[in-house]
């Protein structure tokens, strides 16, 4: 048995298509009847990609918070703090 894509128009006759569709890259609503090509706004593009990654970001934040209170995380924090102060001391001496 083969499966082939068939458009809605083929199945049901002419079906209306939305005049507006979201840009696949930035999610902005784009008027397909509008003049000129759509150009993604940089901030909108970043927001859209961050939104798509929101679950991964939330998971990372939770895992980082848990690691920071673990023995390894606390020791790493202590080392980082010591190095930072050491760096400040080194800069003052230099």
């Amino acid at each position: 048995m083969m499966v082939a894509p068939v458009s809605l128009e083929t199945m049901f006759g002419p079906s209306p298509q939305s005049r507006y569709m979201p840009c696949a890259e930035c999610g902005a609503s784009v008027d397909r009847a509008g003049a000129g090509p759509h150009v993604c706004d940089t901030e909108r593009l970043l927001d859209f990609h961050l939104f798509q990654l929101r679950e991964e970001i939330a998971t990372f934040d939770a895992e980082l918070a848990a690691w920071l209170v673990s023995a390894h995380g606390r020791f790493a924090t202590w080392i980082a703090e010591r190095d930072r102060h050491g760096g400040d001391e080194g800069r003052r001496r230099g």
Binding site: A4, S7, L8
Partner: peptide, 14 residues
Amino acid sequence: QQLGAVPETMPVRT
């Protein structure tokens, strides 16, 4: 359609 809940093409059995 804009939310992607209605596909623009759909597979049918042939």
